[in-house]
Design a binder for these strands. Structure first.
Lengths: 174, 174
DNA sequence: GTCGACATGTAAATTGTTACATGATTTA
DNA sequence: TAAATCATGTAACAATTTACATGTCGAC
């Protein structure tokens, strides 16, 4: 039984403290958390699975309060520090940002630096390849398509700046 | 039978000229086109559906060359100019960029301006709400989560600048 | 003549969405 | 006391991924 991104997102939201499944749905709905759906048909089956895998405990006292277990933390940490591949940077950078958002206390400073460093380097590589594309084959694109790629490059540069400054912030931490 | 975003993405890629289903897969795989998957199990059923709906013709002469029909263009245009809702800006802005990328010849300058204007206004609203959140409840977020939201805001601002300048570009067109 | 790229598809399994269904608790 | 919100779940359907399966064509 594979653990999906949604499952990890739920585990991460339980890090600061226990929540009900409904509470998690509300986080997905109100905050712009990625793109995760708050539909009951996705959250409730997911929490059931996490319980079965022993990654969360549901306390018997109160209804359905979910609490992340030690095993849950280990599984989440393993996921957080997985090596970053080019595909992830190209197609799933929101997932990488989500990982970063959960790293606070679960991951060492060294691991955070490695994560941000790899993310930064691969973002630069990808940005350069998009720029090269625009100057080469991409020059033939219709105007609107070309403008869209330009937005992609600008967004990547924003991300690169953020990664640089965040890397500094992390390095300067006590 | 609902037309999905993937279906519209395929239709849009056929605008500059006919392509094989395989050619479309390669576009999804090589260029960073959104996030659309190039898996055969998604593309081939989709092209079959588009044929059944009469939105593309498959010429009999050559193998499986796909060509968008007049009905296909109408359907695509209707999709392109659908009103922009807050949810779209918050959770699916890549889809909106994709729409823009396909607008070149299919949509009038007036409609482009309306699209970009609405997209711009709603991006500003969303950006302001994220900033207000960070100053309010969000101040209590763990450091990493807060930094992630800050990247979200910076990305939105990049998008807002791009929308402003693109709106000007479109307005200045002959 | 075989390797890689071109080309098209299906089947099974997984995932996720929409809609339905239920009931408790709070608040106006 | 009625409406809104909190809270949990299932069933049917839609969509996608992975893996399998097949065959052509050009280059080396």
């Amino acid at each position: 039984m594979r653990i999906t991104t949604l499952d990890y997102a739920i585990l991460g939201l339980l890090l600061p403290g226990p929540k009900t499944a409904y509470g998690i749905r509300m986080v997905f709905e109100s905050t712009a958390m990625g793109n995760y759906s708050s539909s009951p048909g996705s959250i409730y089956p997911a929490t059931k699975k996490l319980r079965k895998l022993g990654l969360v405990n549901s306390e018997n006292k109160v209804g359905g309060i979910l609490e992340i277990t030690a095993r849950g933390k280990t599984a989440l940490k393993d996921w957080l520090i997985q090596p970053i591949t080019p595909t992830m940077v190209e197609k799933e950078s929101q997932v990488l940002i989500l990982k970063f958002a959960f790293m606070d206390h679960l991951v060492s400073r060294k691991e955070k630096e490695a994560f941000l460093g790899a993310f930064l380097e691969q973002s630069k590589t990808y940005s350069r390849s998009l720029e090269a594309y625009l100057k080469g084959d991409g020059a033939a694109l219709p105007l609107h398509a070309r403008l869209s790629v330009e937005l992609g490059i600008a967004t990547l540069k924003t991300q690169i700046n953020w990664l640089r400054s965040t890397l500094q912030t992390v390095k300067n931490q006590a």
